[in-house]
Deep mutational scan, measured.
Amino acid sequence: MGFKLLSKLLVYLTASIMAIASPLAFSVDSSGEYPTVSEIPVGEVRLYQIADGVWSHIATQSFDGAVYPSNGLIVRDGDELLLIDTAWGAKNTAALLAEIEKQIGLPVTRAVSTHFHDDRVGGVDVLRAAGVATYASPSTRRLAEVEGNEIPTHSLEGLSSSGDAVRFGPVELFYPGAAHSTDNLIVYVPSASVLYGGCAIYELSRTSAGNVADADLAEWPTSIERIQQHYPEAQFVIPGHGLPGGLDLLKHTTNVVKAHTNRSVVE
């Protein structure tokens, strides 16, 4: 069995187990497998329904001669939608809004960016022009300005110390501490036991640490421990890039980060 097929099978099995364990909360999309990078042309966006009122959005972007996937989250909030992270750029984010209108038909009224990198804030200006209120932590807003990236308009308070959590509509926002970046936030959907790890969490097929220019490698494993301790009931975990899975993604990420750190020390 090929690795790609095995990865998709694991996603399907995880979703099936969740649907059985929580039949009222989960209505997993039966329309197909989780979209992969090879299936999404740059400039297009796919939506994948995880649970009743919960979707991931998947886009792709060219970077350094390669094409990478990027995940975000959409959560229903009454007759409105909360968006977590842009679709990595203005063109993708405009396509995301169009796809949401086509498939869901509810307005996106608020959006949260989970850290300051372009795959999370690139497209904020498109959201703002569409009347979406954009939010991020003060740290993310400051770092985005320093980096020359787009800056969300509103500040999220109460997320300055490791372990801080605040309720934001249908989700809980959690600051686990520094990891992929010093400002990275985690998003949890309690009604569906869905954990969105953003770039602080890796997919299972990833074996290298990737972009760690703004990471705190020493603190990252401790931050992941905080996530595990705060959300032990999480059933569906979405990484910032690639295929979702279960809580095993947290341990896998820790292993990859520690291996990278150990290699760096040896070198």
Rank of each mutant, 00 (worst) to 15 (best):
F3N: 03
Y12W: 10
L13N: 15
T14W: 12
A15L: 08
S16A: 06
A21W: 13
S27Y: 03
S27A: 08
S30V: 08
E33C: 07
E33D: 07
E39W: 07
E39M: 11
P41V: 09
P41M: 13
P41A: 08
E44H: 15
V45I: 12
V45L: 11
R46Y: 15
R46I: 15
L47G: 01
Y48M: 06
Y48V: 09
Q49G: 09
Q49W: 06
Q61W: 10
Q61A: 11
F63P: 04
G65W: 04
Y68M: 03
Y68W: 09
D77E: 04
G78Y: 11
D79K: 13
L83R: 01
A87H: 01
K91Y: 12
K91P: 07
N92F: 13
T93Q: 14
L96H: 02
K102A: 12
Q103H: 10
L106Y: 08
P107K: 12
T109N: 13
H115I: 00
D118E: 06
R120W: 01
G123A: 02
G123L: 01
G123P: 01
V124F: 04
L127S: 01
A129I: 04
A129T: 12
A129C: 14
A130G: 13
A136F: 03
S139F: 01
T140M: 02
R141D: 02
N149K: 06
S160D: 05
S160R: 10
D164P: 06
R167C: 04
R167V: 03
P170I: 15
V171D: 00
L173H: 01
P176H: 00
P176A: 03
A179T: 02
H180D: 00
T182G: 08
D183I: 00
L185T: 05
Y188W: 12
A192M: 09
S193H: 11
V194N: 00
V194L: 05
G198P: 01
I201K: 01
I201P: 00
T207R: 12
A213P: 04
W220I: 14
W220L: 12
P221E: 05
T222S: 12
I227T: 11
Q229S: 07
H230T: 06
A234V: 05
I238Y: 03
P244T: 05
L249M: 03
N255E: 14
V256Q: 14
V265G: 12
V265M: 03
V266D: 03
V266S: 15
